[in-house]
């Protein structure tokens, strides 16, 4: 693994939330944090609740803003610093390089699930038919019943929504995947499918950073663990 190129290099990252509406309270979450992830590697973030695992994933995705340090990500062959990238660059990085699975699905209410899953491909220029075929095969693999494909996911169960989420993050085979508890609301059979999808992704060279509370899932997919250090809070 060590000679594979670094896909993510986090350097001296600082993250503090300042809550202006609550008298300017400051919540330091990450301080001087550094770590790297190589192509083909899956790193599991560990640490107690509130340590900042989800915060770190969101920072890498550009969903949270860093107060200091760099978040380098390999995009189209060059390292781009997410912490200082323009919104326009970030949109391109997300379209082609970064996939993110959160626990919650946020979609336009009336769009059928197969369209949601196909959309990332269409945005990259794949023809509509081919994109739908690809989406269909991912949905099939995730055991999403075919009768649900043409329905908007608003009424789906938690586990069904979670699988739509995973399908839309994995469909375009992006080189970096950020997974925040991707198996949290899945049954054992679907957990096994997600494990095999993650393994397929690392086998094709994807770099993965994930939070897996389920010990068996973690053991099955992670090459190593990275413990997010707890920052001492000012009293």
């Amino acid at each position: 693994m060590t000679d594979a190129p670094a896909m993510i290099a986090v350097e001296e990252l600082d993250k503090t939330f300042t809550l202006h509406v609550q008298g300017g309270a400051r919540i330091p979450v990450l301080s001087d944090l550094s770590f790297t992830v190589s192509a083909g590697e899956c790193v599991a973030l560990t640490g107690p609740s509130g340590a900042g695992k989800s915060t770190l994933l969101r920072l890498i995705y550009g969903n949270y803003k860093a107060q200091g340090g760099r978040i380098l990500v390999r995009h189209d062959g060059a390292m781009v610093d997410i912490a200082s990238a323009s919104p326009r660059t970030m949109l391109a990085v997300r379209a082609r390089t970064l996939g993110y699975v959160s626990q919650f699905l946020r979609v336009v209410p009336r769009v059928p699930s197969i369209e949601i899953v196909a959309e990332p491909l269409i945005r990259l220029g794949t023809a509509r038919e081919a994109a739908r075929d690809r989406a269909a095969s991912v949905l099939q693999r995730l055991n999403v019943p075919e009768r649900l494909w043409t329905i908007a996911p608003a009424t789906f169960s938690g586990g069904e929504q979670q699988r739509i989420n995973i399908a839309s993050a994995l469909v375009s085979e992006r080189p970096i995947l950020l997974l925040d508890e991707p198996t949290a609301s899945l049954d054992a059979a679907n957990r096994a499918v997600v494990i095999s999808l993650i393994r397929d992704a690392t086998a094709r060279g994807a770099a993965i950073v994930g939070i897996f509370h389920d010990r068996d899932v973690r053991a099955a997919v992670a090459d190593r663990e990275f413990a997010v250090p707890e920052v001492r809070r000012a009293a």
Partner: peptide, 8 residues
């Protein structure tokens, strides 16, 4: 704007 890839 940061130095972005050619396509941007």
């Amino acid at each position: 704007v940061d130095p972005s890839p050619a396509t941007e």
